[in-house]
């Protein structure tokens, strides 16, 4: 095989950028699964909802897709709080998280996907923005802005949430809630309220992740499913509960996927994350970077 160095370097660099985007997609699950121990497998479906919000804002109102998602952040936050409330009353309190709680999120995933099909059909949709198209050229490396912007948005999300979690009272309580709920109550904090807020935040990240998703690639309602394996592979590989590990895992996966599609063809890329997930689960389930 003719492996040129340029091709390799470009594949690695754009893999890094892709990995940054994967961090944006995964951070919501890093919160819900990693910190709250709630296995929200419907997260990718809500990311896709974010993509369509960005699409509507962009196509019908001419707004920048990221701005459209930012405007809708409060709505996603509220939706997340509502979903958590239902989950808490119907499953957490009955201690029925595994069978029916998981099926609940699976049902939400399906309902959301079918609703999008009903509303928008199965055609691919995309957005317009000045940074979609041009690239930043640095010597032999080409950095397409449509990857660079999502990367920057993702890093802003990671840093912003990390600061919130470590510096605010609510943030610290979110970190504590999975460790010991009774102890948290003894700090005068209601675990249900803290989880509701955290779950709302996790949903809010889906709005932004959706906007960057539709910047990177055109979307149709079923592509959310491809991201389930990816997201959970990243979260498990990164070791649950740490953003740092999650970002490193996301970038690793981005690079491996990019090399795979450069040298074997893009149709093989979705299989990479499953391989990574299975190997991690089989070899070191606490994650490569877990505590």
């Amino acid at each position: 095989m003719d492996v040129s160095l340029d091709l390799l370097i470009n594949a690695i660099v754009s893999g890094l950028l892709l990995g940054g985007f994967y961090a944006a997609v995964s951070i919501g699950v890093a919160i819900s699964f990693g910190m709250l121990d709630i296995v929200n497998i419907a997260h990718p479906a809500f990311i896709l909802l974010g993509s369509y919000v960005a699409y509507i804002g962009n196509t019908y109102f001419g707004i920048d897709p990221i701005l459209a998602a930012v405007i809708l952040l409060p709505a996603f936050y509220a939706l997340g709080m509502a979903v958590y409330q239902v989950y808490h009353v119907a499953f957490e309190r009955r201690d029925d998280q595994s069978l029916r709680g998981l099926s609940f999120f699976f049902g939400l995933l399906f309902i959301s996907e079918v609703s999008l099909v009903l509303a928008f059909g199965v055609d691919y949709r995309s957005v317009q923005a000045p940074y979609i198209g041009p690239s930043l050229d640095l010597l032999v490396i080409q950095l397409p802005w449509r990857l660079l912007v999502p990367f920057l948005v993702a890093m802003a999300m990671v840093v912003g949430l990390q600061i919130f979690l470590s510096r605010s009272f609510i943030g610290r309580a979110i970190q504590a809630v999975a460790q010991d709920q009774l102890a948290l109550r003894l700090m005068a904090a209601s675990p249900v309220r803290i989880k509701r807020i955290a779950f709302g935040l996790s949903f809010a990240t889906a709005a932004l992740a959706g906007a960057v998703l539709i910047i990177i690639q055109p979307v149709e309602p079923s592509i959310g499913r491809e991201y389930i394996g990816r997201i959970f592979a990243i979260c498990v590989l990164g070791g649950l509960g740490s953003f740092g590990g999650m970002v490193i895992a996301a970038m690793t996966l981005g690079i491996v996927e990019n090399l795979t599609s450069t040298f074997f063809g893009p149709s093989w890329a979705p299989a990479v994350s499953f391989g990574v997930l299975l190997i991690t689960l089989a070899v070191r389930p606490s994650g490569i970077l877990g505590r």
Partner: peptide, 8 residues
């Protein structure tokens, strides 16, 4: 049993 948050 103290009930600290061990990972904080």
């Amino acid at each position: 049993g103290r009930r600290l948050f061990p990972k904080l």
